[in-house]
């Protein structure tokens, strides 16, 4: 079943034409990755899906419902949450409060409590830091908090923007194994990554984005063996 479908999306930053007719699909239960170099429009796609940017043209459907005219609040309430690029942790709020903000769109206090427990199981480090201010966490801990906070919305589609950015290799492996766990527990994921190698190991399918257009798509296996991908994104010659 198709969870999310973008058709011919055009998004602008002022006069800059950032997305030039991007189309993609995410099926229920999948991990889909968006690959591409800096400025290709990966983050723009996530921001457009969440209503932080408005497409000038094209349609976005989530479970058949049109998103392009909904507010971000409404989109989060429908079940799309994001761990944004740069993490954007609330620096002077505790880890606990950051998690509560992740659940802002929900009113079921019992469910929120259960989900807090669930994300703390996924990220035991956050339990140790539960009453520490977000701004005092290390980069890796902040990344974990950003993902945990996004999970607190109990999303049906989780958008992850560069979860490996600025992290030590060991932490990257750890974060990706948690991403796989989140997916096996039933959450569909749209993953934006610069680290194409890691992304293709957890993703089922992928799209390659170049200057605002999808230029290539396929299963992770296909992409891993594709000549262009190997050269441009996997650093092989």
């Amino acid at each position: 079943m198709t969870l999310l479908e973008l058709r011919d999306i055009h998004t602008y930053y002022g006069n800059i034409h950032a997305l030039k007719g991007a189309s993609l699909r995410v099926e229920q239960g999948e991990v889909v990755t968006l690959l591409g170099s800096n400025g290709a429009g990966k983050t723009t796609i996530l921001r457009t899906i969440q209503g932080l940017l408005r497409p000038r043209q094209g349609s976005i459907r989530f479970e058949g419902r049109a998103l392009e005219s909904l507010s971000t609040e409404a989109i989060v309430r429908l079940g799309i949450s994001q761990s944004p690029e740069g993490r954007l942790i609330f620096p002077r709020m505790t880890v606990q409060e950051n998690l509560e903000m992740g659940a802002f769109s929900r009113r079921d206090s019992l469910g929120i409590k259960a989900d807090t427990e669930r994300v703390l199981m996924l990220f035991p480090r956050l339990r140790e830091r539960i009453s520490q201010k977000g701004g005092t966490l290390s980069g890796g801990e902040q990344q974990m908090l950003a993902i945990a906070r996004a999970l607190m919305a109990r999303p049906r589609l989780l958008l992850l923007d560069e979860p490996s950015m600025g992290l030590a290799p060991m932490l990257v492996t750890q974060i990706f194994s948690i991403i796989r766990d989140i997916n096996t527990q039933g959450t569909t994921i749209l993953l934006v990554e610069q680290n194409a190698r890691m992304a293709l190991t957890v993703a089922h399918r992928g799209y390659v984005l170049q200057t605002g257009q999808i230029v290539l798509t396929g299963t992770s296996k296909d992409l891993q063996s594709n000549e262009t991908v190997r050269k441009a994104y996997l650093g092989e010659t």
Partner: peptide, 11 residues
């Protein structure tokens, strides 16, 4: 503390 992040939370 972070208006952009607050928006993303659905605030």
């Amino acid at each position: 503390q972070n208006r952009e992040a607050a928006k993303i939370m659905g605030i």
